[in-house]
Protein backbone atom coordinates (compact mmCIF):
# COMPACT_ATOMS: atom_id res chain seq x y z
CA UNK A 1 0.00 0.00 0.00
CA UNK A 2 1.30 3.36 -1.02
CA UNK A 3 0.71 5.27 2.18
CA UNK A 4 -1.32 8.40 2.75
CA UNK A 5 -2.13 11.06 0.19
CA UNK A 6 -2.89 14.61 1.18
CA UNK A 7 -4.78 16.60 -1.40
CA UNK A 8 -3.35 20.10 -1.66
CA UNK A 9 -6.03 22.72 -1.15
CA UNK A 10 -4.92 25.77 -3.09
CA UNK A 11 -6.18 28.59 -5.25
CA UNK A 12 -3.79 30.53 -7.45
CA UNK A 13 -0.87 29.01 -5.56
CA UNK A 14 -2.15 30.06 -2.13
CA UNK A 15 -2.05 26.88 -0.09
CA UNK A 16 -4.44 26.46 2.79
CA UNK A 17 -2.83 25.70 6.11
CA UNK A 18 -4.86 22.53 6.63
CA UNK A 19 -2.75 20.95 3.86
CA UNK A 20 0.40 21.24 6.01
CA UNK A 21 -1.48 20.09 9.09
CA UNK A 22 -2.49 16.90 7.29
CA UNK A 23 1.02 16.28 5.92
CA UNK A 24 2.47 16.45 9.42
CA UNK A 25 -0.16 14.15 10.93
CA UNK A 26 -0.01 11.68 8.03
CA UNK A 27 3.53 10.75 9.15
CA UNK A 28 1.98 9.04 12.17
CA UNK A 29 0.04 6.57 10.07
CA UNK A 30 3.20 4.95 8.72
CA UNK A 31 4.12 4.39 5.10
CA UNK A 32 4.81 6.99 2.51
CA UNK A 33 3.29 10.47 2.74
CA UNK A 34 2.48 12.18 -0.53
CA UNK A 35 1.09 15.57 -1.42
CA UNK A 36 -1.17 15.61 -4.47
CA UNK A 37 -1.48 18.92 -6.25
CA UNK A 38 -3.67 19.78 -9.25
CA UNK A 39 -3.55 23.11 -11.03
CA UNK A 40 -1.93 25.14 -13.75
CA UNK A 41 1.66 26.24 -13.17
CA UNK A 42 1.76 24.53 -9.78
CA UNK A 43 4.97 22.57 -10.20
CA UNK A 44 6.85 25.30 -8.38
CA UNK A 45 4.84 24.57 -5.26
CA UNK A 46 6.27 21.07 -4.92
CA UNK A 47 9.24 22.15 -2.78
CA UNK A 48 6.85 23.52 -0.15
CA UNK A 49 5.53 20.08 0.70
CA UNK A 50 8.93 18.47 1.16
CA UNK A 51 9.49 20.91 4.05
CA UNK A 52 6.53 19.44 5.86
CA UNK A 53 7.43 15.82 5.36
CA UNK A 54 6.09 14.84 1.95
CA UNK A 55 8.07 11.88 0.59
CA UNK A 56 6.46 12.33 -2.80
CA UNK A 57 4.64 15.12 -4.56
CA UNK A 58 2.27 14.08 -7.33
CA UNK A 59 1.69 16.95 -9.73
CA UNK A 60 -1.04 17.12 -12.35
CA UNK A 61 -0.40 20.37 -14.19
CA UNK A 62 -2.78 21.34 -16.97
CA UNK A 63 -5.15 24.08 -18.14
CA UNK A 64 -8.07 21.84 -17.25
CA UNK A 65 -7.09 22.16 -13.57
CA UNK A 66 -6.52 25.94 -13.64
CA UNK A 67 -9.62 26.55 -11.53
CA UNK A 68 -11.16 23.99 -9.22
CA UNK A 69 -13.92 22.03 -10.90
CA UNK A 70 -15.33 18.88 -9.41
CA UNK A 71 -15.63 16.81 -12.57
CA UNK A 72 -12.07 17.12 -13.85
CA UNK A 73 -10.49 16.93 -10.39
CA UNK A 74 -12.40 13.78 -9.43
CA UNK A 75 -11.69 12.10 -12.80
CA UNK A 76 -7.98 12.80 -12.35
CA UNK A 77 -7.98 11.52 -8.79
CA UNK A 78 -9.81 8.33 -9.73
CA UNK A 79 -7.24 7.60 -12.46
CA UNK A 80 -4.36 8.21 -10.07
CA UNK A 81 -5.87 6.05 -7.35
CA UNK A 82 -6.15 3.25 -9.88
CA UNK A 83 -2.53 3.60 -10.86
CA UNK A 84 -0.87 4.15 -7.48
CA UNK A 85 -3.28 2.53 -4.96
CA UNK A 86 -2.86 4.84 -1.96
CA UNK A 87 -4.10 3.50 1.35
CA UNK A 88 -5.86 6.77 2.26
CA UNK A 89 -6.69 10.08 0.58
CA UNK A 90 -7.21 13.02 2.91
CA UNK A 91 -8.78 16.36 2.08
CA UNK A 92 -9.16 19.52 4.14
CA UNK A 93 -12.76 20.06 5.19
CA UNK A 94 -12.95 23.21 3.09
CA UNK A 95 -15.67 24.04 0.59
CA UNK A 96 -13.65 22.46 -2.23
CA UNK A 97 -12.35 19.58 -0.11
CA UNK A 98 -15.74 18.35 0.97
CA UNK A 99 -17.17 18.86 -2.52
CA UNK A 100 -14.45 16.82 -4.20
CA UNK A 101 -14.24 14.13 -1.51
CA UNK A 102 -18.01 13.51 -1.53
CA UNK A 103 -18.15 13.02 -5.28
CA UNK A 104 -14.99 10.90 -5.20
CA UNK A 105 -16.27 8.67 -2.39
CA UNK A 106 -19.52 8.01 -4.24
CA UNK A 107 -17.67 7.30 -7.49
CA UNK A 108 -15.59 4.75 -5.57
CA UNK A 109 -18.80 3.40 -4.00
CA UNK A 110 -17.15 4.04 -0.64
CA UNK A 111 -18.02 5.35 2.77
CA UNK A 112 -16.33 8.46 4.06
CA UNK A 113 -15.81 10.47 7.22
CA UNK A 114 -16.13 14.22 6.77
CA UNK A 115 -14.92 16.98 9.09
CA UNK A 116 -12.90 14.54 11.18
CA UNK A 117 -11.06 15.91 14.22
CA UNK A 118 -8.91 12.84 14.87
CA UNK A 119 -7.78 9.83 12.86
CA UNK A 120 -6.10 6.48 13.30
CA UNK A 121 -5.36 5.00 9.91
CA UNK A 122 -4.01 1.53 9.23
CA UNK A 123 -4.06 -0.69 6.15
CA UNK A 124 -7.50 -0.56 4.56
CA UNK A 125 -9.16 0.56 7.76
CA UNK A 126 -9.46 3.78 9.73
CA UNK A 127 -11.16 5.11 12.81
CA UNK A 128 -12.12 8.77 12.73
CA UNK A 129 -13.51 10.96 15.45
CA UNK A 130 -16.19 13.32 14.19
CA UNK A 131 -17.85 16.17 15.99
CA UNK A 132 -21.60 15.83 15.48
CA UNK A 133 -24.34 18.29 16.42
CA UNK A 134 -21.66 20.91 15.74
CA UNK A 135 -19.52 19.58 18.56
CA UNK A 136 -22.19 18.90 21.16
CA UNK A 137 -21.35 15.21 20.78
CA UNK A 138 -18.57 13.09 19.32
CA UNK A 139 -18.85 9.99 17.17
CA UNK A 140 -16.09 7.48 16.56
CA UNK A 141 -16.61 5.89 13.17
CA UNK A 142 -14.90 3.09 11.32
CA UNK A 143 -14.34 3.48 7.62
CA UNK A 144 -13.04 0.66 5.50
CA UNK A 145 -12.08 0.96 1.88
CA UNK A 146 -9.41 1.12 -0.68
CA UNK A 147 -8.55 3.89 -0.45
CA UNK A 148 -9.97 5.40 2.72
CA UNK A 149 -11.40 8.86 2.01
CA UNK A 150 -11.91 11.57 4.60
CA UNK A 151 -12.00 15.33 5.10
CA UNK A 152 -10.19 16.82 8.07
CA UNK A 153 -11.14 19.92 10.02
CA UNK A 154 -8.66 22.79 9.82
CA UNK A 155 -6.77 23.64 12.99
CA UNK A 156 -7.02 20.33 14.84
CA UNK A 157 -3.53 19.16 13.91
CA UNK A 158 -0.27 21.04 14.32
CA UNK A 159 1.90 22.13 11.45
CA UNK A 160 5.30 20.52 12.01
CA UNK A 161 8.28 21.13 9.77
CA UNK A 162 10.15 17.94 8.95
CA UNK A 163 12.15 17.30 5.84
CA UNK A 164 10.82 14.75 3.38
CA UNK A 165 12.35 13.63 0.11
CA UNK A 166 9.68 15.50 -1.82
CA UNK A 167 10.30 13.50 -4.98
CA UNK A 168 8.22 15.11 -7.72
CA UNK A 169 6.12 12.75 -9.80
CA UNK A 170 4.54 14.37 -12.82
CA UNK A 171 1.43 12.41 -13.59
CA UNK A 172 -0.33 12.04 -16.91
CA UNK A 173 -3.45 14.13 -17.30
CA UNK A 174 -6.39 11.77 -17.30
CA UNK A 175 -9.23 14.31 -17.06
CA UNK A 176 -10.79 15.42 -20.33
CA UNK A 177 -13.15 18.24 -21.32
CA UNK A 178 -15.99 15.71 -21.18
CA UNK A 179 -15.47 15.42 -17.40
CA UNK A 180 -16.18 19.11 -16.82
CA UNK A 181 -19.81 19.92 -15.99
CA UNK A 182 -19.39 23.18 -14.08
CA UNK A 183 -18.51 26.37 -15.93
CA UNK A 184 -16.72 28.87 -13.71
CA UNK A 185 -18.19 32.26 -14.67
CA UNK A 186 -16.68 34.44 -11.99
CA UNK A 187 -14.76 34.44 -8.74
CA UNK A 188 -14.71 37.42 -6.44
CA UNK A 189 -12.14 37.07 -3.67
CA UNK A 190 -13.13 38.28 -0.25
CA UNK A 191 -11.32 41.56 0.24
CA UNK A 192 -10.15 41.48 3.82
CA UNK A 193 -6.86 42.10 5.49
CA UNK A 194 -7.98 39.68 8.20
CA UNK A 195 -7.33 35.95 8.20
CA UNK A 196 -10.16 33.57 7.45
CA UNK A 197 -12.29 32.39 10.37
CA UNK A 198 -11.47 28.70 10.16
CA UNK A 199 -7.72 29.25 9.74
CA UNK A 200 -7.06 32.04 12.24
CA UNK A 201 -4.99 31.60 15.39
CA UNK A 202 -7.16 34.18 17.17
CA UNK A 203 -10.86 34.89 16.58
CA UNK A 204 -12.66 37.92 18.01
CA UNK A 205 -16.45 37.76 17.81
CA UNK A 206 -19.21 40.24 18.44
CA UNK A 207 -22.79 39.46 19.43
CA UNK A 208 -26.04 41.09 20.46
CA UNK A 209 -24.20 43.19 23.04
CA UNK A 210 -22.57 45.15 20.21
CA UNK A 211 -25.98 46.77 19.73
CA UNK A 212 -25.15 47.78 16.15
CA UNK A 213 -22.38 48.48 13.63
CA UNK A 214 -20.68 50.88 16.05
CA UNK A 215 -20.23 48.03 18.55
CA UNK A 216 -18.84 45.82 15.79
CA UNK A 217 -16.26 48.56 15.11
CA UNK A 218 -15.07 48.31 18.70
CA UNK A 219 -14.66 44.55 18.30
CA UNK A 220 -12.93 44.97 14.92
CA UNK A 221 -10.34 47.23 16.50
CA UNK A 222 -9.38 44.47 18.94
CA UNK A 223 -9.36 41.89 16.14
CA UNK A 224 -6.98 43.97 14.04
CA UNK A 225 -4.69 44.63 16.98
CA UNK A 226 -4.31 40.87 17.38
CA UNK A 227 -4.22 40.05 13.66
CA UNK A 228 -7.34 38.03 14.36
CA UNK A 229 -10.29 36.89 12.30
CA UNK A 230 -13.62 38.58 12.93
CA UNK A 231 -16.66 36.48 13.74
CA UNK A 232 -20.13 36.91 15.11
CA UNK A 233 -22.98 35.15 16.86
CA UNK A 234 -26.30 34.57 15.14
CA UNK A 235 -27.72 37.77 16.67
CA UNK A 236 -25.21 40.01 14.90
CA UNK A 237 -25.62 38.15 11.61
CA UNK A 238 -29.44 38.18 11.74
CA UNK A 239 -29.33 41.91 12.53
CA UNK A 240 -27.25 42.44 9.40
CA UNK A 241 -24.17 43.81 11.20
CA UNK A 242 -21.99 41.03 9.78
CA UNK A 243 -22.24 38.73 6.75
CA UNK A 244 -23.29 35.13 7.21
CA UNK A 245 -19.85 33.86 6.23
CA UNK A 246 -18.67 35.23 9.59
CA UNK A 247 -21.22 33.36 11.70
CA UNK A 248 -19.79 31.06 14.35
CA UNK A 249 -22.12 28.32 15.56
CA UNK A 250 -24.21 25.37 14.55
CA UNK A 251 -25.65 27.03 11.43
CA UNK A 252 -22.39 28.82 10.72
CA UNK A 253 -18.76 27.85 11.06
CA UNK A 254 -17.10 25.71 13.68
CA UNK A 255 -13.79 27.21 14.75
CA UNK A 256 -11.00 26.01 17.01
CA UNK A 257 -8.44 28.83 17.29
CA UNK A 258 -5.83 29.20 19.98
CA UNK A 259 -7.81 32.07 21.47
CA UNK A 260 -11.48 32.96 21.03
CA UNK A 261 -12.69 36.26 22.42
CA UNK A 262 -16.47 36.60 22.71
CA UNK A 263 -17.65 40.17 23.05
CA UNK A 264 -21.27 40.78 23.96
CA UNK A 265 -22.16 37.15 23.27
CA UNK A 266 -24.34 35.45 25.85
CA UNK A 267 -23.40 31.94 24.70
CA UNK A 268 -26.53 30.30 23.33
CA UNK A 269 -26.02 26.57 22.96
CA UNK A 270 -25.86 26.82 19.17
CA UNK A 271 -23.03 29.38 19.43
CA UNK A 272 -21.11 27.40 22.06
CA UNK A 273 -21.23 24.43 19.69
CA UNK A 274 -19.20 26.41 17.18
CA UNK A 275 -16.39 27.63 19.41
CA UNK A 276 -16.07 25.68 22.64
CA UNK A 277 -13.22 23.54 21.33
CA UNK A 278 -11.02 26.67 21.15
CA UNK A 279 -7.84 26.32 23.20
CA UNK A 280 -8.46 29.45 25.25
CA UNK A 281 -11.74 31.35 25.54
CA UNK A 282 -12.20 34.87 26.86
CA UNK A 283 -15.51 36.66 27.24
CA UNK A 284 -16.74 40.17 27.92
CA UNK A 285 -20.42 40.41 28.79
CA UNK A 286 -22.60 42.63 30.98
CA UNK A 287 -24.70 39.71 32.26
CA UNK A 288 -22.91 37.85 35.03
CA UNK A 289 -25.26 34.87 34.47
CA UNK A 290 -24.46 34.57 30.76
CA UNK A 291 -23.68 30.92 29.82
CA UNK A 292 -20.57 32.04 27.93
CA UNK A 293 -18.87 32.39 31.34
CA UNK A 294 -19.32 28.64 31.91
CA UNK A 295 -16.82 27.92 29.14
CA UNK A 296 -14.62 31.01 29.43
CA UNK A 297 -11.09 30.65 30.78
CA UNK A 298 -11.13 34.37 31.42
CA UNK A 299 -14.40 36.26 31.82
CA UNK A 300 -15.00 39.94 32.38
CA UNK A 301 -18.41 41.02 33.61
CA UNK A 302 -18.63 44.43 32.03
CA UNK A 303 -19.64 46.63 29.15
CA UNK A 304 -17.71 45.81 25.97
CA UNK A 305 -17.93 49.47 24.89
CA UNK A 306 -15.82 50.35 27.92
CA UNK A 307 -13.70 47.24 28.46
CA UNK A 308 -12.63 46.45 24.87
CA UNK A 309 -11.13 49.88 24.00
CA UNK A 310 -9.28 49.88 27.36
CA UNK A 311 -8.09 46.36 26.64
CA UNK A 312 -6.67 47.57 23.31
CA UNK A 313 -4.82 50.34 25.12
CA UNK A 314 -3.42 47.87 27.65
CA UNK A 315 -2.34 45.41 24.96
CA UNK A 316 -0.45 48.13 23.12
CA UNK A 317 1.60 48.91 26.23
Amino acid sequence: MAGTWVFVDQRDGNIRKVTYEMLAEAKKFGGEVAAVVFGKGVEGLAGEFAKYGADKVYVADDDIFAAYNTGAYVAQMVAMIKEYSPNAVLFGHTMNGRDMASRLAQKLDAGMATDAIAAEISDGKAVFTRAIYAGKALAKVEVTGSPIVATIRAGVWEVVESAGAGEVVKVAVAATAADVYQVAKDFVPTVSARPELTEAAVVVSGGRGCKGPEGIKVVEELADLLGAALGGSRASIDSGWLGHELQVGQTGKVVCPGLYIACGISGAIQHLAGMSSSKFIAAVNTDTEAPIFNVADFGVVGDLFKVVPLLCTELKK
Binding site: A110, G111, M112, A113, V127, A131, I132, G135, K136, A137, L138, A139, K140, V141, E142, V143, T144, G145, S276, S277, I281, T288, F293, N294, V295, A296, D297, F298, G299, V300, V301, G302
Partner: peptide, 20 residues
Amino acid sequence: KVKVLEFALPAGKTAGIKIE
Protein backbone atom coordinates in the same frame (compact mmCIF):
# COMPACT_ATOMS: atom_id res chain seq x y z
CA LYS B 1 -20.44 1.84 4.61
CA VAL B 2 -19.51 3.65 7.80
CA LYS B 3 -19.78 1.94 11.15
CA VAL B 4 -20.37 3.99 14.28
CA LEU B 5 -18.21 2.55 17.05
CA GLU B 6 -19.21 4.86 19.83
CA PHE B 7 -20.85 8.12 20.77
CA ALA B 8 -19.42 10.34 23.47
CA LEU B 9 -19.93 13.77 24.92
CA PRO B 10 -16.98 16.15 24.68
CA ALA B 11 -15.10 16.85 27.88
CA GLY B 12 -16.99 19.92 29.00
CA LYS B 13 -15.00 23.10 29.30
CA THR B 14 -15.09 24.41 32.80
CA ALA B 15 -15.44 27.99 33.88
CA GLY B 16 -12.15 29.70 34.64
CA ILE B 17 -11.55 33.13 36.09
CA LYS B 18 -14.47 35.56 36.15
CA ILE B 19 -13.87 39.10 37.29
CA GLU B 20 -16.25 41.94 38.04
